[in-house]
Simulated scan of single mutants.
Amino acid sequence: MKYIEIKARKTTLYPADIEKIISKGCVSGILTTGKISNNAKKLLDQAGIAWAENIEERQFLESEAEELE
Results as ranks from 00 to 15, higher is better:
48 G>D: 07
1 M>R: 04
10 K>V: 09
2 K>D: 07
65 A>S: 11
54 N>W: 10
6 I>H: 00
18 I>G: 00
69 E>L: 06
46 Q>D: 15
26 C>H: 11
59 Q>S: 15
27 V>Q: 01
43 L>E: 07
20 K>F: 06
23 S>H: 01
41 K>Q: 09
54 N>P: 05
32 T>C: 02
18 I>R: 00
14 Y>E: 13
55 I>A: 12
2 K>R: 03
33 T>E: 05
40 A>R: 13
17 D>Q: 02
21 I>T: 11
7 K>E: 03
29 G>T: 10
53 E>P: 07
60 F>Y: 08
10 K>D: 15
1 M>F: 05
29 G>E: 06
1 M>E: 12
41 K>P: 01
68 L>D: 12
51 W>I: 05
34 G>I: 00
65 A>N: 02
22 I>Y: 07
33 T>C: 00
19 E>M: 02
18 I>A: 06
27 V>L: 10
68 L>A: 04
42 K>C: 06
61 L>S: 15
1 M>D: 13
63 S>C: 15
23 S>A: 07
34 G>Q: 05
67 E>A: 13
29 G>F: 14
58 R>D: 15
49 I>F: 04
40 A>P: 00
10 K>H: 12
44 L>T: 01
52 A>M: 12
40 A>L: 03
22 I>L: 13
21 I>G: 00
8 A>T: 02
19 E>C: 13
60 F>G: 06
26 C>I: 04
49 I>Q: 12
50 A>P: 11
37 S>Y: 05
43 L>R: 06
51 W>D: 12
52 A>K: 15
24 K>Q: 11
21 I>W: 08
66 E>I: 10
5 E>S: 10
37 S>W: 01
67 E>K: 13
4 I>Y: 15
48 G>Y: 05
30 I>T: 02
38 N>G: 02
49 I>A: 04
11 T>Q: 11
31 L>I: 13
56 E>R: 09
58 R>I: 14
12 T>Y: 05
52 A>G: 13
3 Y>F: 14
63 S>I: 12
22 I>R: 04
65 A>H: 10
29 G>A: 14
55 I>K: 10
36 I>Q: 04
66 E>Q: 10
35 K>Y: 07
42 K>Q: 04
22 I>P: 01
52 A>N: 07
16 A>G: 07
38 N>H: 05
62 E>A: 14
23 S>W: 11
28 S>N: 01
22 I>K: 07
35 K>P: 01
7 K>L: 10
16 A>V: 07
54 N>Q: 15
65 A>G: 08
57 E>M: 15
54 N>I: 11
68 L>G: 12
7 K>V: 15
28 S>W: 09
43 L>V: 00
32 T>M: 02
15 P>K: 02
58 R>K: 09
